[in-house]
Design a protein around this nucleic acid. Structure first.
Lengths: 112, 112
DNA sequence: CGAAAACTGTGCCATGAGGCTAAGCATGCT
DNA sequence: AGCATGCTTAGCCTCATGGCACAGTTTTCG
């Protein structure tokens, strides 16, 4: 995956895949083994495992192996990164509408 | 871009790139021409244009050409798709904690 | 012990993303 | 008209992604 300029890159890229989003959703209901998860998707286990690894590499999921079973658990906190970015965008946008507001109510306020 | 199983795929993929996120952020402050935007990024115009097209293809930006200048404008509403998905995740997770709650307060409630 | 279960590792392939250069328009300015 | 500006198009390159098959490895169970 090259290397991300920010963690958000990886998190968003990880979520930009329907299989991986489905896994996140499924794990929202509680931990599950790789095998149980995989059974719900139309692809081979090795292919599926790559998705799990991607999610793990980007901190969206934690996995532990006990015996021959690897269990996956959602790391909800990670989604906050996305939330935060969205919130920032909203702030940027609001700062702008504020400027427009001021411009309308008091035209000479404009600068730059 | 193959074809996305859901619009979210495309939107998230589009946002999973620092250049494109920066463009979105920049446009949060108001519309700008492709040229003005491009000047802020260390890449050639054709490369940059691809990013703009990607954003446009996924509905995050609207562009109009007037004369020889193409102006880009943010389509804020599109980010709601991401918001909605996050909200759904939260719902899934909360449904689960509710089940756990009930289990603790009234153990015989458990089913499946 | 021997076989089944549940991953894991390796290697291969096709596609697409993100960059670049080099031309090629269309528009605007003088 | 002639030149500069501002995108566009085309073609090419490299690397990452998402799949696959097939061959291990480690546990677990009878």
């Amino acid at each position: 995956m090259a290397q991300f300029s920010s963690e958000l890159d990886g998190v968003l890229a990880a979520l930009a895949d329907p299989t991986r989003r489905a896994v996140v959703r499924r794990l929202g209901g509680g931990p599950m083994s790789v095998g149980d998860l995989a059974r719900e998707f139309p692809m081979t286990l090795p292919s599926f495992m790559k998705h799990v690894r991607t999610l793990e590499a980007n901190g969206l999921v934690r996995t532990v192996k006990s015996g021959r079973v690897r269990t996956c658990e959602l790391r909800r906190g990670r989604l906050a990164l996305v939330d935060d970015w969205l919130a920032e965008q909203r702030r940027v946008w609001e700062a702008r509408t504020d400027r427009l507001e001021r411009l309308v109510t008091d035209p000479k306020e404009e600068r730059r």
